[in-house]
Design a protein around this nucleic acid. Structure first.
Lengths: 245, 245
DNA sequence: CGGGATCTTGAGGATGCTCAACGCTAGTGG
DNA sequence: CCACTAGCGTTGAGCATCCTCAAGATCCCG
């Protein structure tokens, strides 16, 4: 186990005195239920970190001392089998919370895929805050519930969908997220590698690439510059995501 | 959508005046954090139901009015694709809680596999109780967290494991549950059909059956009468569950 | 003891994987 | 500013695992 964040001060982001108040993703995250006063207390607890691409945030099995909030960039969560096979359990974008699925140790590894800005909290600090602010605990339960629903959708995908259905489902979910952020739902940024997509969808790099090509040929999408995928018809895509016949 | 439990009184179990106090699974479920007084209040909220095999408890998309506690039998949770493909997201045994993964509507369907005894609570009643008893909400968050960890293990299984590894992982989890209940971890009851196992593991009935036969031939297990599987060596099985080479 | 459902086994086939080569692109350093 | 290169993406051929379809065996319940 390595502890890449052992000396966080060196890498702390140089933001102002109260980063939380200026946080661009504040309304999307669990902070949204807090008052100004509570927020400033959260501020004191938070360590703000800047990470570059391909850095390990923590490893599966590490003692779960921290919780995180991603404020910028892309984080990959994954589990490994002894022989190296990898299953990506999720991608975290700006505004996503990290650290729900765990007891005393992390149940998966977390690694940056792109440069990332992240707020780190001591677990004990947050748990103390939960006890004092019940609505915060309630918010956490809600978030856990949502994650569980998502995980179950992913079980259906991995257990029963074809390669084409899997990729269409994935693109659709990226589209929905983009829409929620206020970005275009048809010009979607796909910032992760083919390999990571494969590890998320239970496929190989090659099958992901081939399936992209097939969808391009069928005029479902275009592959633009800079990892931008243009989705030609979201309704069609929704059909393809559930039943590719 | 059908509502098979519309007239619960007809089917209420004939237990004594305070079934919760006599509940055989009490210590395993969320009730365990409650005092005697709180428990009797829970009693008043609960409806105790007896169901036979293959009954629908609720369907995916139904308004989530109730939460449940299974006290006896076996419940199957599943999701369907439009063309009928099925993914089982979990099996619930005595002591398991039902209703975590949902917001306003159920995210999956629930159906009895064997005759089942179940306690039903109105969601609004329980939520009121959560507000009054924070440790209950905390317990729910814990349970949700555990389910999430399990779901992620299942993602790894469905995305990256071979048929043999999947079946061994499944048998091992049944063995662990049996052990926790105080039953033998090597003489494990497998009360669900090959088809349900397949729908849980992302395989077909035939592949499940063939894989059982293969494991039998390799002397990993025996298939005894009455759906009892004898596991010959749990350590070997743990190896096979992660790496079948 | 009979019969329907479940389980097992077999043969053939399809989807997705492996191995391999090639093309593209972005980042680097001259 | 451009050429180089390493990593990533694409495409192809052959193959393995698991699926489909089908028939028989077994179990369990009435």
């Amino acid at each position: 186990m390595d502890f890449p964040l052992k000396d966080p001060l060196k890498r702390q982001s140089g933001s102002g005195p109260s980063p939380c108040a200026a946080c661009t993703v504040r309304d999307w995250v669990f902070c949204s239920v807090l008052s100004e006063h509570e927020l400033s207390r959260l501020d004191e607890m938070a360590t703000h970190l800047d990470l570059s691409a391909k850095e390990t945030i923590f490893n599966e099995g590490d003692e779960a001392k921290h919780l995180f909030n991603v404020t910028e960039g892309l984080v990959k969560l994954y589990k490994l089998l002894p022989d190296g096979r990898e299953q990506v359990t999720g991608f975290l974008f700006a505004g996503d919370f990290l650290g729900i699925a765990m007891n005393d140790t992390y149940a998966y590894s977390a690694e940056t895929t792109q440069p990332v800005k992240i707020c780190r909290f001591k677990r004990s600090d947050l748990e103390q805050m939960f006890r004092e602010i019940p609505k915060l605990e309630n918010r956490m339960l809600n978030m856990a519930t949502n994650e569980l629903v998502q995980a179950q959708d992913q079980l259906l995908l991995l257990g029963r969908k074809t390669a084409k259905e899997r990729l269409c489902t994935f693109l659709l979910s990226l589209s929905k997220r983009a829409d929620k952020r206020g970005d275009s739902p048809t010009l979607v940024s796909v910032p992760m590698s083919r390999e990571s997509i494969g590890d998320y969808l239970g496929l190989t790099t090659e099958t992901v690439s081939r399936t992209f090509s097939k969808l391009k040929k069928e005029n479902v999408l275009s592959l633009n510059k800079g990892g931008i995928v243009e989705l030609h018809n979201l309704d069609d895509l929704m059909g393809l995501a559930e039943d590719s016949t």
